[in-house]
Write a protein that binds this DNA or RNA. Structure first.
Lengths: 229, 229
DNA sequence: ATTACTACTAAACGAGTAC
DNA sequence: TGTACTCGTTTAGTAGTAA
């Protein structure tokens, strides 16, 4: 997460870049910078000192104004910002959505599915954790949450392939990486032909969420679902 | 020029966008926003009020957290930021460079060229002003300024086509829009086969720069040259 | 010239709290 | 709950000025 302070510096960095300090050296005096940013010369001076201390810029003070070049670390910051914005502007769906609902007890079907090795293996590979053998069921109630849950269907998901064993066949499962209660990394899983409707979330995680978060039926839970993977 | 205050708000706007408020409605409580940005709930509340007052976002406060959507004006802000960064990241040259030198008196050749109608006409069309019949000559001295002046040759220019009249032929002239002393809009002009070398700038403007800026030989002048046109 | 220090002022922040 | 007010504290910004 970008900090507030970092952002201020990134702003100055962007302005310096626009003045030609990106990928080359530009002569920029504190007074010139101050005028451009409509701040005082003193504040501009302080900013440049801070950016230099952070190794965002290299600076050589010369008579007539310092020579400034944005360094590796500063360029990285600008590139990160650019790619974040790029995702935002070019995708039709948001990078993440947050849903909220109440915990309820299901029929134990989640545990049954997750116990199947082909699913476990793919969860390990694609989500990067060994799933706790059981799912947390969350019931959505507000119109907003239900609508957003439905929108989610259209976003790209990680796909866990189906398989067959001697008794029956198991279908494709779509997954979205998620953070539960702002703490635990897990995933929202949705079987293509689910017995639950769009008002239910089924969550897998490497731990027992009920124990770990001390959840009981009826408790409210927030789930932040990522659409980037 | 973007104000300081605007920037802080753009930062919050970006975060809201990443939480799904871009092109759709997201449920974001002040507390949730506060936690994400590592600021207090009170400050988050204040930010949302400010953004709403600026018409950057539309907000409907509901129990369980306000519904937030970034509006036209807010989207524009993010798009502007994106395109500024895009220019920076994808071009190999900076959007603008600033050069400094001292005024000197030339041989009046600039005035002779600018008096030619075909040149005047194109300056009017391509630069958007009626040129004062005369050029301001600026001598660069520092290594930095001369090197930057040379780099400029490689950047794309507005081209003023040559022509022939009964007596002789006139060559192609490359122009770069420029701001002189941070005040007057004009242009740097460079004849392809100039009698001056890379240490000289020749400036045209809609007014007599010497009079308007009270310049005398030996005075220092800053010229901000744009490479975007 | 420019840069940046010190001392002061203005603005932003967050704790407590009412709704 | 979640939101936003007041008010004391902290931080950011500027003026004056020395180097």
């Amino acid at each position: 997460m970008t900090e507030k302070q970092d952002w201020q510096h990134l702003y100055i960095l962007l302005k310096l870049a626009e003045m030609g300090a990106y990928n080359r050296t530009a002569k920029i005096s504190t007074e010139y910078l101050a005028k451009k940013l409509r701040i005082s010369q003193q504040t501009a001076s302080r900013y440049l000192i801070e950016l230099e201390q952070k190794n965002f810029i290299h600076r050589k003070v010369t008579p007539g104004g310092g020579l400034i070049q944005i360094e590796e670390k500063g360029s990285k910051g600008l590139q990160k910002l650019y790619s974040n914005l790029k995702i935002l502007m070019e995708k039709t769906y948001p990078p993440s959505v947050t849903l909220e609902g109440t915990v309820f007890t299901g029929f134990g079907e989640g545990a049954y599915y997750i116990s199947k090795d082909p699913y476990r293996k793919q969860i390990r590979e694609k989500l990067g954790f060994e799933p706790y053998p059981g799912t947390l069921n969350i019931k959505l109630s507000s119109d907003y949450d239900i609508k957003t849950r439905k929108d989610l269907e259209a976003y790209p998901a990680l796909e866990i392939m189906g398989f067959q064993n001697e008794n029956r066949s198991f279908g494709l499962v779509k997954c979205y990486p998620a953070i539960i209660s702002g703490q635990i990394k897990g995933a929202l899983v949705t079987a293509l032909r689910s017995h639950y409707d769009a008002s239910v979330l089924e969550i897998v995680a490497p731990v027992c969420l009920r124990k770990r978060l001390s959840l009981k039926d009826g408790n409210k839970v927030k789930v932040e679902i990522s659409t980037q993977h």
